[in-house]
Design a protein around this nucleic acid. Structure first.
Length: 579
RNA sequence: GCGCCCGUAGCUCAGUUGGAUAGAGCAACGGAUUUCUAAUCCGUCGGUCGUGGGUUCGAGCCCCGCCGGGCGUGCCA
């Protein structure tokens, strides 16, 4: 497709006697694929040629030598490159059929490395529904970059350090009558919900007995001093947390190359601060040590008055360490938009330190998860609306609801899906629906948690797209003739609905690249919806099996199925074959 | 106060980096099923793109002001 664009530009350049490079930037996609594959707007030439744009378009159309298999037609002020139907069909189908199911789709990122910091929850607590955002967006970005040929390093910056672990150790001891021996014995069977209970229970307990706050600080100090008991408890708490986290990550298809939590950077903080000082930008302000980063933003706090380090200090140490070890061209921080100021400060400090990592760092912000309140208005997390519920519980609920729907429809259609089929499909479709809901809109738009709408089989939903893939798979299952692109009569793929699918398929690569450049998975989600719509329309209007055009239509069906499957996989939905 | 984000159909949102007649889904209404999964498709209804200026051959998109909403703002993460 790219070669075609170049040929178009080349032909125009020759007709206009102009430089090709300057023309290429102004080439656009027509709003409707029926108009052509590419278009050149003639407005900018009006002044120089002292003619109206439509006249210019007509003049060039008369003069230009169209590339083989195409025609260049004037349409008002535009020059459109129209492909002969068989050319578009051959190009779109053959390139889709050559898609590697797991390899890259484009090569735009070849030789470059991206680090993606995502999910990064606090350890010792259960995941709450809103944690879905960073997890799902980050995982999609990892696969998206991979599809564009990048080397991807996925990192989970786990919140595994701080006074909250002093609190947990203390609460654990209290639950065992302050008997260390006894509490160590029980440590093997501690669960994440135990940790969560203790975490939540600390606040009321401390309200009753204020000395607990000081005790918790003490226990954290012992942990920092690597005291054996504290250390053993902490290690076990982290292990339990990771085990539970991984269960969720598996369900989302989220993958990490490294768990490098905050504790990992603890012994690197002094060196980091020394480096900041050496750069001559560390200043004393109101007893704290800060770095000034600009007129309109507050300074970045590096060390508190009491000497303790802060969130920003750890992020600086992490940015520097990661850059030295992974050498990435881009480092994405998939973190909610509420932390924009924090990252602005941290990146500015890196800039002032003249760290090479400064240029690589990109904050990829996203909006909130809103739930419907009792008043019917959308508002921030609440347990009642479901947005404050534990994430695994919501995932289970989604799977159960989808299971009911599939079971009812399977009965109605007398399908031969077994119970275990339905169980595994419910998981794929239920979780897929949640994933798609998080990815379908621009990251910065707040997502609305409306389970009924999310799980609907009609509308802009995950199930709608998965169903398109199911219909294609179903046709291919019943096909008996082998696919043979070499003998295809491409001119038979000529109906409007067929053409729409072909045009959509031909855009796959550029959509991937656009999504990567904008760090915006929703660009691919929107593409998935477009493709699914066109597939549904095609399969509805045209019969594939047992007709004259069967060999060609089967090729189209397989091309569309492969592309749709790849898109679903990148987004994090399973391309199921039945439902 | 200051900073950032958002404002497009009754509701939820797209709008391909400034180009062709502003598009989908949901809801409502009307159609299509002897046919490969109709969980679908086709149609109708629905818009002063928050508002007032500016730049441009051309603005939903860029610049400035205002209105409305959200988030964040020095010792939490």
């Amino acid at each position: 497709m790219n070669g075609l664009k170049k040929a178009f530009v080349g032909a125009l350049a020759q007709a206009l006697e102009q430089d090709a490079a300057s023309l290429e930037a102004s080439i656009v996609r027509p709003p409707d694929s029926k108009l052509g594959a590419f278009a050149f707007p003639c407005f900018s030439l009006a002044k120089a040629l002292r003619k109206g744009p439509p006249q210019i378009a007509a003049d060039i159309a008369a003069k230009v030598v169209a590339p083989e298999g195409t025609s260049v037609v004037a349409a008002g002020p535009y020059l459109n490159l129209v492909l002969k139907p068989c050319v578009l069909a051959r190009m779109a189908v053959t390139s889709s059929l050559s898609l590697d199911p797991t390899g890259s789709v484009t090569e735009s990122g070849k030789g470059r490395t991206v680090l993606v910091d995502y999910s990064s929850p606090n350890a010792g607590k259960e995941l709450v529904y809103h944690h879905i955002r960073s997890t799902v967006i980050g995982a999609a970005l990892c696969r998206l970059y991979g599809a564009a040929g990048w080397k991807v390093v996925a990192v989970n910056h786990l919140g595994d350090w701080g006074t909250q672990f002093g609190k947990l150790i203390l609460m654990w001891l209290r639950e065992h009558g302050m008997d260390q021996e006894k509490s160590l014995v029980d440590l093997g069977s501690v669960t994440l919900s135990d940790l969560n209970r203790m975490y939540v229970g600390f606040k009321p307990a401390a309200a009753e007995d204020p000395t607990l706050e000081e005790d918790a600080r003490l226990w954290f100090a012992r942990l920092e001093a690597k005291e054996a008991f504290a250390r053993t408890c902490w290690e076990r708490f982290i292990e339990v947390s990771k085990t539970e986290l991984n269960k969720v990550y598996v369900r989302f298809g989220a993958r990490f190359d490294h768990f490098l939590g905050e504790s990992f950077y603890e012994d690197k903080l002094d060196a980091t601060i020394a480096r900041i000082a050496k750069a001559g930008i560390l200043e004393e302000s109101e007893g704290a040590q800060v770095v000034h980063v600009g007129e309109n933003i507050p300074p970045c706090l590096i060390r508190k008055r009491d000497g303790a380090t802060l969130y920003a200090t750890r992020d600086l140490a992490a940015a520097i360490w990661r850059h030295e070890h992974f050498g990435c061209d881009r480092a994405l921080y998939v973190v909610d938009a509420g932390q924009s100021l924090h990252f602005k400060q941290v990146f500015a400090v890196l800039e002032r330190m003249q760290e090479p990592s400064a240029k690589a760092c990109i904050h990829v912000p996203f909006g909130l998860v809103l739930g419907k309140g009792e008043d019917g208005n959308w508002s921030k997390v609440s347990t009642r609306s479901g947005t404050g519920s534990p994430l695994p519980a919501v995932m289970d609920m989604a799977a159960v609801e989808i299971g009911k729907t599939i079971r009812a429809l399977a009965l109605q259609k007398e399908s031969d899906l077994t119970d275990s089929d339905i169980e595994s499909l419910s998981e794929s479709i239920g979780v897929g629906a949640l994933v798609f809901n998080e990815l379908k809109n621009k990251r910065l738009v707040d997502t609305k948690f409306d389970l009924e709408a999310i799980l609907s089989f009609s509308g802009d939903t995950g199930p709608y797209i998965q169903y398109a893939h199911v219909r294609l798979s179903s046709i291919l299952r019943k096909a008996t003739k082998p696919l043979n692109p070499a003998k295809a009569r491409w001119e038979l793929l000529c109906e409007p609905e067929t053409d729409a699918v072909l045009a959509c398929l031909s855009q796959f690569g550029e959509r991937i690249d656009q999504a990567v450049e904008a760090n915006e998975p929703s660009l691919l989600s929107q593409y998935a919806l477009e493709l699914a719509e066109k597939v549904h329309s095609f399969t509805h209007h045209h019969r594939v099996l047992d007709v004259d055009a069967t060999p060609e239509r089967l090729l189209l069906v397989e091309a569309a199925r492969r592309t749709l499957s790849r898109v679903l996989t990148i987004l994090g939905l399973e391309a199921v074959e039945r439902m």
